[in-house]
Write a protein that binds this DNA or RNA. Structure first.
Lengths: 218, 218, 218, 218
DNA sequence: AATGAATGAGCGTTCATTCAT
DNA sequence: TATGAATGAACGCTCATTCAT
């Protein structure tokens, strides 16, 4: 009787196995981000990415077998990096308010960078047309608000969970909204610091005013 | 004061029998907006617009001789309509705070509509890759802030011009930032009212606290 | 109130409207058949057809918006032509047997042509992988058997309907089966006439032997 | 008599540890047949075969260095298996007519199987575009007719060699022609038995009617 | 023996645009 | 005003093949 040994490879090549391949995949993702930022998603093509990464289209598709796969890997990467950066902020041993101020400042100043200024609007736009991306985004902002919420709760421990979540949402949304105004090459960029001060004061008042309205008639 | 009144349409050739009260060109622009919202700018094509507008590609290009012309006319139209709607808000004879509350509420609730939720991120994204669109957008938000600033100044006449402008920027940016969170089919949509209450309180405090920090160290 | 007049064009251009376009579409179908016959379906590409028809790929796709559309139109055309040719055979005023002999001869000799020899195996193969093509084919052979059946019934009016249908199936299938042997450039082509005589004798005996077995144990 | 015995495999390099009783190369050939049958030759690719055989493309190409080599080896294998099956039929000690009936029945019922229904049209189609395949096919059907001819000669020993060959051709071609009608999932499949009875009667009459016409006017 | 890396060609399709009718 | 005809470029993707590991 034939005892054909068990073998069931994925049938497709698994890139990144060789050392050469691993760096290639990273290069490609870098190139993808560059293309996205420089040309926008409506001009994001595998050919452009291949050119940017300095390899041939066929080879690129050896690493990422479809455009979707590449886009997802790219989003994954950027979001992961973003969250990692967020996580590193709060590690300091500052008092609650100082820590909160530090977080807001970091987030705000990050808006100035070209990467953030350009990448996020693309993400928001994509999320409106692609459920998968919407999911990615929601997970990212969820984690974002968790980190923010922890700091908020330290500033005013009297807030209940729901209040903290709503304040975190308001603050995070407010900050994101400044992307189009104080971001890289945006008209108000030079006044980032003042806006930040103003925003921080407003956020802190909100956190401290115990009487956060929950369902007030409008 | 803003001198951006009386903006000329971007597309030079928009012929049409105005007799019927509704021109073919307008139908096309409506179709263009529909396509933009339903498919995103990265899937926006003249063929799709022609199909949506129920005419042939060749004919569409008689009205809008290039894609650019169509896109600009479309943005013009949407932005104009948006500003027109803004202008209509403040016409009421309410007291300053009530008027301010009314404005914020209108803006906030507008985020819930599919049109706003989807259109604006496309606009923000486009503005990052097209100077022309960036100009449009800046003019639109300039007018937006003017209207907002007028209301802010009525609530606290003690604020100087610069303070008003900065507060208006913060408020408008904050509101825009909520698009991705309380917009059409977004996760926090059900809590729009609470967030709005919270935001309004925060904004009003900011306006009234005379001590708006101008360039405080961070 | 806007009374926008009713208009609802197909939104896509309808080729063949202009005189130029009509002949073009015919040329393309001719070219498609040529490519199919010369290269086989596994080498059938729109680029090849375009080249054969002496137009550009983009233009070809103006006439046939997808490969499927072209293939279906091509099959339609060939099958229609084939059936039309069949229909023309029986019009003669011959006696039943002579008419039957004439039909069989026509069908048989047709196998010798390159077109028939090559086209039909492609069709049979395609039908196994494409339900749509299978439907086309079945309709074609249904009509084929009808014509054949009418002649069979004239030769032996004693046969009931079911017997006629089964004999017609056997005869038509038998003839088709000779494609690979007496067809264009096939090894037995030179003996087509003898095989035909043999086949005809066999078919005629079958038709006349009243005792056509219906469900005999094997 | 046919001298086509001992045919060498087409692919020169078919390494493999024969120790296990079943070689990797054989797995690949099985996979190739599966792909051919499930997707058709126009969708037959090395990548699909590799996936079906559960190995990587690079490895597959170690066994079959080119697509041609694989295709030829595959055809070889299927044809060999088919002929082997044919050879096994006549081994019984039945009387001439019973043996003939048995052969026809076996061949006919084999048409019902998916493998036969789908594989042979692919073969016929391929043979029209590839001289090599045409050669394979001719050798196969030559052997087929030899076996059939031997049985025919036993039923009517009075037939001369040429008559036997022509009758064998007619019978084999007729049977093959039923593939598209009584084959797997074909419309007339349910009536295979009746058609078979009818065909067998017709064939037997042909064999016995000494007066097989050789070049009768038509 | 096995598999990833890389290439170049070709595929069907979509597209903005120009031109003739 | 309306629409078909035609082009050329680009798109995502599949493919057979070669080469290094």
């Amino acid at each position: 009787m034939s005892t054909s040994t068990a073998r069931k490879p994925a049938a497709k090549a698994v890139p990144g196995t060789y050392a050469k391949g691993r760096t290639r995949a990273e290069d490609i993702l870098d190139a993808a981000v560059t293309v996205l930022i420089e040309h926008g998603y409506h001009n994001f093509s595998l050919r452009r990415v291949a050119e940017e990464a300095e390899l041939r289209l066929g080879n690129l598709q050896h690493y990422f077998p479809s455009k979707d796969a590449l886009v997802q890997a790219m989003l994954d990467r950027v979001i992961e990096a973003y969250l990692a950066r967020l996580g590193r902020i709060q590690s300091s041993g500052l008092d609650p308010e100082a820590q909160f101020r530090k977080i807001i400042e970091t987030l705000f100043l990050d808006l100035n960078t070209r990467r953030t200024t350009v990448f996020f609007p693309e993400l928001w736009s994509l999320a409106n047309h692609d459920a998968h991306v919407a999911g990615y985004m929601e997970r990212m902002y969820g984690r974002y608000r968790e980190l923010l919420g922890a700091s908020i709760a330290r500033v005013n421990p009297a807030l209940d969970e729901r209040q903290v979540r709503q304040i975190a949402l308001f603050i995070s949304a407010s900050i994101e909204g400044h992307t189009m105004f104080v971001g890289h090459r945006k008209p108000w960029r030079a006044q980032t610091k003042e806006i930040l001060a103003l925003a921080t004061a407003s956020f802190l008042w909100l956190i401290r005013s115990g009487e956060v309205p929950v369902m007030q008639d409008t």
